[in-house]
Design a protein around this nucleic acid. Sequence first.
DNA 1: AATTAATTTATAATGAGTCTAAATAATCAA
DNA 2: TTGATTATTTAGACTCATTATAAATTAATT
Lengths: 149, 149
Amino acid sequence: MDTGMIIKNIRRQLHDGGYKLTPQREATVLVLLENDKDHLSAEEIYMLVKQKSPDIGLATVYRTLEMLTELKIVDKISFNDGVSRYDLRKEGDHHFHHHLLCLECGSIEEVEEDLLGEVENIVEKRYDFLVKDHRLTFHGVCSQCRKKK
Amino acid sequence: MDTGMIIKNIRRQLHDGGYKLTPQREATVLVLLENDKDHLSAEEIYMLVKQKSPDIGLATVYRTLEMLTELKIVDKISFNDGVSRYDLRKEGDHHFHHHLLCLECGSIEEVEEDLLGEVENIVEKRYDFLVKDHRLTFHGVCSQCRKKK
DNA sequence: AATTAATTTATAATGAGTCTAAATAATCAA
DNA sequence: TTGATTATTTAGACTCATTATAAATTAATT
């Protein structure tokens, strides 16, 4: 799907939630789209948005990210390094993808496929817990770092 | 296993890592042992330790928790609410247990059994990633909150 | 056009976590 | 044991991510 179409969908989602897609919000979403393989912090997103809209304020970026999180357009995740990171959810995805965090180089790889179907069933039955979403991160060593040794 | 024995084991683990079990560190470990079902933040731990050792400083608690995390005696985890939480690892456990976070009441339930064995195998093979540890949290609605409705 | 509501900006405030220097406690060599 | 060295703790200053606030701007409505 092209960017224009994605933006159009997001505009509709905002309207459904009672929000407008202001130029600042659109610029923020564009940065997220252009960097959908990264896991940017609010500060990093702010720096990138500033290149498009130099007058945007940091608080606006924070508020936009909060709103996008509430609407489940982005997922907020923390990798225990003291900052929250924001990850655009793929169109039609109803689960949050998983992450592989390399303890040596700090890289974060994404695992698109949902490996938790069976595990969620067990949790729902055995713990009587209605699962809505999940966060799964593996800590380990990526192939590149293992090759180096 | 009784508390004395656990403390003894932890003392040995600290020594092996080149640290001493000072009274302040012991008081901190005791608080973690006494609240092993909770997921306390550093500040909460500090408050509880202060009841045992009123003269302890917040920085000492932070440093102790950092050390215990490094030695894998506790696991540090964040549930996206802006604070890190610390969870004592059970004796002999080589994986971090999972969590069920209720989006309505905020309660956190623990899942002791390891449900990720097969998933880790897939990740190791399919993504060529050496798994050392994991963080798995399900977001959803607990049985109590569902009963209320 | 005037009014109201939503949004943004700039900046101040908060609060978790870290750093630093001085004090204290433990360890070691003589 | 004494003095010297090292590790640890304390208190408080500091940093930095995030949030709150008040004034200004923009958009929507009457």
